[in-house]
Every structure is written in C-alpha cells, then in structure tokens.
Amino acid sequence: MTNSFPDKEPLLRVDGLSVDYGLKGDPLRAIDGVSFELRTGEAVALVGESGSGKTTTAMAIAGLLSPNARVSGGQVHYRGQRLPIDDDAAMRPHRWSETSVVFQGAMNALNPVHRITKQIAEPCILKLGMTRGEATARAIELLELVGIPADRGVAYPHELSGGMRQRVMIAMALACRPSIIVGDEPTTALDVITQAQILKLLRDLRSQLNLALILITHDLSVVAESCDRVMIMYSGRVVEDGTVAEIFAEPKHPYTKLLIASIPNPANGKKMIRPIPGDPPNLVNRPSGCAFHPRCPSTMSVCTTEVPRLGRFGHGRVACHLHPPLQENMVTVHA
C-alpha cells in the first residue's frame, strides 16, 4: 500500500525538522532532523519510548507546538504548501480542517460542562460557518458514524464510558473532514476489548473516508493491527522506517530488534517481558554519534563518533552503521 502511488506528491512532507524546548542558552532538542513523507490514506505509526520525540513530531504537524517550543530547523509541507508550524495564529486555519487530533484518555480531553453534541458541532460552526441547526445535525450524523445512538447526543462526557468518550473524540476529529488524523495514544487508557473496538473503528473510518493516520504509540501490537508503516524513534531521531510486515519480520536496527523482542508472547512460551538494558538517553546531553550506542549490543567504534544517516535500505530506511545506505541509483533500480 505504501508504495502503490510513488509518483504522486505526498500529502505531507517533513524535511529535517528539529524542535527545541526551553531557553535559547540551554535548549533541549526534542526532535533532531526528522524527515518523512505521508501519503493520502496512509497509516503511519510513530513508535518510541517516552521522550523519543514522537509526540513533539506529531504535535508539530498538527500545529500544536507549545509556546516554549522553537522550530530550530527544517520545514513541513502539506499538499505542496509550506506550513507555518511555529506561528500559532497562522496555523489556525489548518487545525481541525486539515489535521485533527484524537487525544488519549478522552475524559479530560472533552470539556466537562458541555454536552457532547455541542462539542462536536462547535468546529462546524466556527470553521465551516454552519448554522447551529446544521452543525447539530452534522454532529448527530457523526455520532451515528462512530456507533453512538443519536439520543445519547445530549449526554455530558462524565455520563459515558471510556470507550464511548473515545468514540466521541473520534467523531469530533472527523467534524471538519480533515485529511490527516493524529492519534495520540488513543487506546492507552482503555481495556483490551474496547481497545480492539476503537482500533477497528479507526480502521473502518480510514478506508471509508480515505484518511491518513499518524498513530503515536509505544504499543507495537496496536501498530500491527492498524498501520501500514512504522517509524521507530529514538532520542528525537527516526532510526528505522518500513512497512509493518518488513519491520516485524526483519527488523534492521538493533533498537527495533530489542523492541520487538521485548513484546511478551505467551503463545510461544515467552511469558516474561524482556527489557532493553540501560537508561533512556538524556536529551540535554545526548550521547555522541548514534544516541543508542551506550545500550546497543553491537556497538562499533564509529558508532560513538558519527551520527548514522537515515538512508534507504530495502523498501524502507534505517539509520545504523551496521547497515550503510545503498547508493541512491541502486534504490531506483531495486524499486
């Protein structure tokens, strides 16, 4: 699916994006030179541990960088147009109309004092210029689309279960017919059965509405079920990028290998969680060279000095000195 239309201009193109937090004198680089493309209708998972930069990457795309964040390099293009991601007011027309967000734990993401229909209808009135009546009709239509009966529209968030609230959040995200939905760990707070239902709903809506999805998660089992492509992030950099099938069958980067090996699988007797030794990297004082080298089982001397380039490898990309990038022209021949 990923490479089925390689010639079209991608929906979203991120080039060497770097984002810093904090003061100018002592900045914390949350993401460092992130580059990738997203095609219409494609689902990409951003996987990594806390502090790997997956949320910052996704929020930058949605135009939701916090006021203390600074774009220190790179750019983002949406449908060929450069997005002013560091300008809060200029990003306003883009938000929700082009990129919307399904936040995690929809309890706090929904306003406790407004009825759910009103919250779904709000962007339709403010962004699409609908009348209150039209917007309410649209909200009820969306509720039914995500499997909530129309008569529940008068409910307040606290009157709904966790799964229902997440459905409301999804309905709300669809309100202005966006092309990209960012899922910020949308199933983290839910039980396994509800989680499966929500993932199925997202999958169905995606194919029905031809939506692109950027799914932030640290749960690889969620990725396998709902995405076409995976990007593994470590210490603010993309270390590996490939189709779900490739990454799970044949991971290249040692971090990806350890990440996949850490999933417990009771079916083949792997009942214990196998942790990756060592501590997550310090972002203020990032390890030299490859940030993963202090924890990597196959460190070479070059790993401590040189940052590996994220180069094409097979159908995907990997940033590791064990897998030096193939020549660009060879890739073309290969593809």
């Binding site: 949605a62 939701l64 938000r95 919307s100 936040f103 993401a109 929904l110 306003n111 962007p123 403010l126």
Partner: peptide
C-alpha cells in the same frame, strides 16, 4: 489543548 487543536 483540544480547544486549541480545533482551531479556536
């Protein structure tokens, strides 16, 4: 944050 994401 949701309100901001909605483009308000």
């Amino acid at each position: 944050v949701t309100a901001r994401a909605k483009g308000l």
